[in-house]
Design a protein around this nucleic acid. Structure first.
Length: 461
RNA sequence: GGCCGAGUGGCAGAGUGGCUAUGCACCGGAUUGCAAAUCCGUGUACAUCGGUUCGAUUCCGGUCUCGGCCUCCA
């Protein structure tokens, strides 16, 4: 039985989908003006695990994750670079897909882009105008917050307090200081679309309301995103959507992942202490493979609602753990089975991935010890890993997969050096044997002599 | 100022009203020509002050510290 923490009532309660046959999920995706950093990667990874779990539990799941490809940050960045907006967003989206693939994420079922849904947004804004929840002023269309009694339910904010604490000067055309923009005008040299209110572009929040409603209906199960989106983004989404469709209640469950810190400090551009996923992944396929899964495991080692301090040493730690798991798994080839361990149970407890990881460790231990049922333990290990989106490679490629530098120097002679060393050891010529070991080590290759007389190798970098 | 979250052993990080995970690191041992890997063993920690209780790290309250949000900024 799946239990999830719902931000709406700040409680962990049993998840009951609107339709047992079809679970529907929407997650806020990236604004594509720059490479994603680890802070962006967390919700991607966390909700990917949720997606995998839901697929395991329910016959059909539709997962929608949008791409925001029109936004003032994008406009500014494109102008700075003297680049077309479309070129910037396409390039960024390609890199985004490359990054998250390395992080082992499944593709969402639908990945709608804001610019493809301007018409849907205009329709929704019209619905709000007709019903009196919005008004137009000075070429803007604004949502009128006082028109909705229980505004602030998600973020638990009192409207009067918000107005009192506002730091930003209120635009003169707003009827109420809390009102927010649905549509705003574009200058002649700015990107814009024709609308009943003149040429302009959508406000920030409307795209998610329009696209989630379009693909999942006015009522759906889960809406996820980073904790920072609770206010104002998600609060305003709720307001818009519920008012546009008064008979529906929009998302039933609101899930939010916690913040990231970086190397013990607040992530900030001025400190320059945030890592992009791209730089962490490194250059070659091998680095990408190692780093991708290591970053993923590092993130899943902390519960998704807890704050997470992202450190490189934490990634190294995760790498070591993956080495251990891959070693236990070996190269045995078998069908994925259903996990009979507590991993599903742990994940059903509000995605308790740290507990799932601990169970993986225990399984790994029982494989290493070589108790009865080793094959079962391996199967469970594999099954658990696939729920977590880990151990997606073969052990051989994990340990021996070629690196860019290796292929450059054409190092296909590792096996023959090992054979030479085996001969030397047979002659008890340990000086020669050790010098071969050392020369391989200098190339980043570690040899392990097995009890049965064979020698295996793996790369350490 | 308002609202929200966090504070666990050297580190990371779960969890629980009493039996106190897990991993890494450290130390000791086994194994090994060396090494690597693996195995065995060793660690009663839960910010602080009160309260409730037979008993609290776990519940309640105060305090301290840290972090976040407070309208176009993920």
């Amino acid at each position: 039985m799946l239990h999830l923490y719902n931000t709406l009532n700040r409680k962990k309660v049993e998840f009951v989908p609107l339709d047992e046959e079809h679970v529907r999920v929407y997650v806020c995706g990236p604004t594509v003006y720059d490479h994603i950093h680890v802070g962006n990667a967390r919700p991607i990874i966390v909700f990917d695990v949720l997606y995998r779990l839901l697929q395991h539990l329910y016959p059909r799941v539709t997962y929608v994750r949008n791409i925001t490809d029109i936004d003032d940050k994008i406009i500014v960045r494109a102008a700075e670079r003297g680049e077309e907006i479309g070129a910037l967003t396409e390039r960024t989206i390609r890199q985004f897909h490359h990054d998250i693939e390395a992080l082992g994420t499944l593709k969402p079922d639908i990945e709608p882009r804001a610019t493809d849904h301007i018409h849907d947004m205009i329709k929704m804004i019209n619905l709000l105008l007709i019903q009196g929840f919005a008004y137009s002023a000075e070429q803007h269309v604004l949502f009128h917050v006082p028109a909705l009694q229980d505004y602030g339910r998600l973020s638990r904010r009192d409207r009067d307090d918000m107005v009192a604490g506002a730091r930003v000067e209120v635009a003169p055309y707003k009827k109420d200081p809390a009102d927010f923009v649905l549509w705003k005008p574009s200058m002649d040299d700015q990107v814009g679309w024709n609308s009943p209110w003149g040429r302009g572009r959508p406000g920030w929040h409307i795209e998610c309301s329009a696209m989630s409603t379009k693909y999942l209906g006015p009522d759906f199960d889960i809406h996820g995103g980073g904790e920072d989106l609770i206010f104002p983004h998600h609060e305003n989404e709720i307001a818009q959507s519920q008012c546009a469709h008064p008979d529906s209640s929009f998302a039933q469950w609101w899930l939010h992942n916690g913040y990231l810190r970086s190397e013990g400090k607040k992530m900030s551009k001025s400190l320059g202490n945030f890592y992009t996923v791209k730089e962490l992944l490194g250059a070659g396929e091998r680095e990408k493979m190692w780093r991708g899964e290591s970053i993923r495991l590092m993130m899943l080692s902390t519960h998704y609602r807890q704050p997470l301090d992202f450190t490189k040493s934490g990634v190294d730690n995760a790498k070591k753990k993956l080495d251990r798991w891959y070693r236990a798994l070996g190269d045995v080839d078998f069908e994925d089975g259903l996990s009979t361990t507590g991993i599903v149970e742990a994940l059903c407890d509000d995605l308790n991935t740290p507990r799932a990881v601990a169970i993986m460790d225990a399984l790994c231990g029982s494989v290493s010890v070589g108790r009865d049922g080793v094959l079962d333990a391996k199967r469970d290990l594999r099954a658990g890993a696939s729920l977590l989106g880990l151990l997606q490679y073969s052990s051989e490629s994990w340990f021996q997969g070629g690196s860019v530098s290796e292929s450059r120097e054409g190092g296909g002679d590792i096996e023959s050096l090992i054979a030479q060393r085996l001969v030397a050891r047979g002659d008890r010529d340990f000086d020669t044997a050790d010098s071969i070991r050392q020369s391989l080590l200098d190339r980043g290759v570690v040899l392990e002599d097995k009890p049965d007389g064979t020698t295996v190798w793996r790369r350490i970098s």
